[in-house]
């Protein structure tokens, strides 16, 4: 046995390291090796020479992307979808959680929870399938309903200006219930004596919601907001890809779908260029996350760590 205290500690908990070994190996191979591989963004990757042997070209691919004809359009589409989604998808779960908290009938509350959580477990492919069926200009039920009021029929999927709304509101439909769970949990941890005292003082329900519940869930809301900001350029790529069609492509091409096409489906697939675009996005996300977290820390609004 070694006398070195460091080695001693390692030996003492060798079983914990043994447990951790498989997850650690996974993390290294499937998360950190690709990060290492991302260096091809600064190289001209050739299959023959491999990741390490390909030649360095510096920032060539980044400047090509930033100066490309598509750059501003893609960035604009990504930001529009992202902010629209945040504007609708962030406050609604909070409102749902607050509202559920004041429902008198617990059976109704349970029914609302049961139904609104459910769509979260439906696959993206099926959600897009549902959207396409319900919005069909000829036989879709939505067009029948608005036809009742003398509107339409509207070819929703063929209307470029409607793309972002279709994306955002189908997302709200799918996730509003599930995303409110975290706020229900936060509401449950508010000290009930605050409410009792407020009732004694004759505070109305609205005032109690405004002055007790809302501040009570604010720290959680800030954390959710920070996390969302860290993914502002990650729009639900798998869903956008399925919603895309030749007509809406002008509004629906986002950074991630572009990365996919440039790298893997294009006739002249360019691994390095595609990786550079992806890296560009990742770095901006990371910077945004750290910045917003710093601001939240400085203003004492809570923080991720």
């Amino acid at each position: 046995m070694s006398e070195n205290p460091f080695v001693k500690r390692l030996i003492k908990s060798w079983q914990l390291y043994a447990l951790m070994s498989l997850p650690f190996l996974y993390l290294m191979i499937f998360k950190y090796v690709p990060m290492y591989g991302a260096q091809i963004a600064f190289k001209d990757f050739s299959v023959v020479k491999g990741i390490w042997g390909s030649e360095w070209v510096g920032m060539k691919h980044f400047s090509r992307f930033v100066n490309s004809y598509d750059f501003w359009r893609i960035l604009k589409n990504t930001l529009i979808l992202s902010f629209y989604n945040l504007a609708a998808g962030f406050p609604l779960p909070i409102m749902l959680a607050l509202g559920l908290n004041y429902l008198r009938s617990s059976r109704f509350r349970k029914a609302v929870q049961m139904v609104t959580y459910a769509p979260h477990f439906i696959s993206i492919v099926v959600v897009v399938g549902i959207v396409k069926e319900l919005l069909d200009p000829r036989i879709g039920i939505i067009n029948k309903i608005i036809g009742f009021f003398g509107i339409g029929p509207i070819n929703f999927m063929g209307e470029i200006s409607l793309f972002s709304s279709i994306y955002v509101w189908s997302d709200v439909w799918q996730h509003v219930g599930f995303n409110c769970i975290i706020f229900i949990a936060a509401l449950a941890s508010i000290d009930p004596s605050l409410h009792e005292a407020a009732v004694m003082d004759g505070a109305s329900k609205f005032r109690r919601m405004w002055h007790i519940d809302l501040p009570g869930i604010m720290p959680m809301a800030i954390i959710v907001l920070i996390l969302n900001t860290g993914h502002i350029l990650d729009v639900g790529f798998e869903k956008v890809l399925l919603l895309q069609n030749p007509i809406n492509l002008k509004a629906s091409e986002i950074i991630d779908t572009y990365v996919y096409k440039v790298g893997l489906t294009s006739q002249v697939a360019n691994y390095s260029y595609s990786t550079a675009i992806g890296l560009f996005k990742s770095v901006i996300n990371l910077i945004l996350l750290l910045t917003v977290n710093k601001i939240a820390q400085k203003t004492k609004q809570g923080s991720l760590w």
Binding site: K31, V33, P34, M35, G37, V259, G263, L264, G278
Partner: peptide, 15 residues
């Protein structure tokens, strides 16, 4: 760290 930063699509595919 892996929740904040990833290598991206192509490096993962190549792996």
């Amino acid at each position: 760290f892996t929740t904040m930063f990833t290598g991206g699509l192509i490096p993962a595919y190549l792996l």
